[in-house]
């Protein structure tokens, strides 16, 4: 773990904004997360990599409170939030751009954005944030009165991010931002994320496309069958042959994963 520690040396004394401590989670009999430790610090852009069914989505659900961990703690800004509902966590500054965007297709673009600010009462600030979203995505402003389902994939992605930003998040979770988009849009999408991050947003991104994700991220973890097998800076991970063998190799089985985990430890 030495390399990971050095990568975050500057933030070591700070309290993580969002943290998972030895979290285990189950879907019925399926042990989906095993002793997962994650910590996300303010201002970072970090990513969680992994193949299908490696536990990436479960991690997000657990962070958001849609799934209760069987053991371990989810800590948001220093507070253990295991028993808090999603709405509480959203109010405390965590939000997500879901996989496939999942806009409310029968609602207008404006209504989608307004729902993003559902828990907020400060109408002036909401209006200001609305303007900020328009600045970020001028296309969205043109489509305000349209039903979200009628937008193109790229436009929907903008609305989805805009909707998430409307809750004034302190940390933005992104579930597979490249999923279901044309290659050109994927590139554009990662640029967007990078842009939001540069504007000061903490981003935690879950991805399969390791090269793309690590290209913009500060740090990353690799998840395999519910266990964190690699934890390092983005550059180190990209350079780590274990990433290639254990994950980019297509997740050929547990043996390699276990080796990779040993290497990392």
């Amino acid at each position: 773990m030495s390399s990971a520690d050095s990568g975050t040396a500057s933030s070591a004394e700070r309290v993580p904004l969002l943290e998972m401590r030895k979290v285990n989670a189950h879907y019925g009999a399926v042990h989906a997360l095993r002793d997962v430790d994650l910590s996300i610090y303010e201002g970072e852009l970090v990513c969680l990599l992994g193949g299908n069914a490696s536990g990436k989505s479960t991690t997000l659900k657990t962070l958001l409170g849609m799934l209760k961990p069987t053991s371990g703690e989810v800590v948001l800004d220093g507070e253990v939030v295991n028993d808090r509902p999603t709405s509480y966590r959203v109010a405390r500054g965590i939000t997500m751009v879901p996989e496939n965007r999942r806009l409310f297709k029968r609602l207008t673009v404006r209504e989608n954005l307004q729902l993003g600010a559902y828990l907020r009462k400060d109408s002036d600030a909401i209006a200001a944030d609305m303007e900020r979203v328009y600045e970020l995505f001028p296309r969205v402003k043109e489509r305000l009165a349209q039903k979200a389902g009628t937008l193109s994939g790229g436009e929907q992605q903008m609305v989805a991010i805009g909707r998430a930003l409307m809750s004034q998040p302190r940390v933005l979770l992104m579930d597979e931002p490249s999923m279901g988009l044309a290659p050109a849009l994927v590139q554009q999408n990662f640029e967007l994320i990078s842009q939001i991050h540069e504007a000061g947003m903490t981003v935690f991104m879950v991805e399969q496309n390791a090269n793309m994700a690590l290209g913009i991220a500060d740090r990353g973890w690799v998840l395999q069958t519910g266990r964190v097998v690699l934890d390092d800076t983005a550059e180190a991970l990209l350079a780590n042959p274990a990433l290639r063998t254990s994950y980019l190799g297509g997740g050929k089985g547990n043996d390699e994963g276990e080796t990779a985990a040993d290497d990392a430890g």
Partner: peptide, 23 residues
């Protein structure tokens, strides 16, 4: 109204609605 929008949101996708902080 806000509640009305919440109802329509829940009708369309309850999981995402809860992600917006809707009870």
């Amino acid at each position: 109204t806000k509640t009305g929008k919440a109802m329509r949101a829940v009708a369309e996708d309850a999981e995402i609605a809860s992600l917006m902080g809707i009870d």
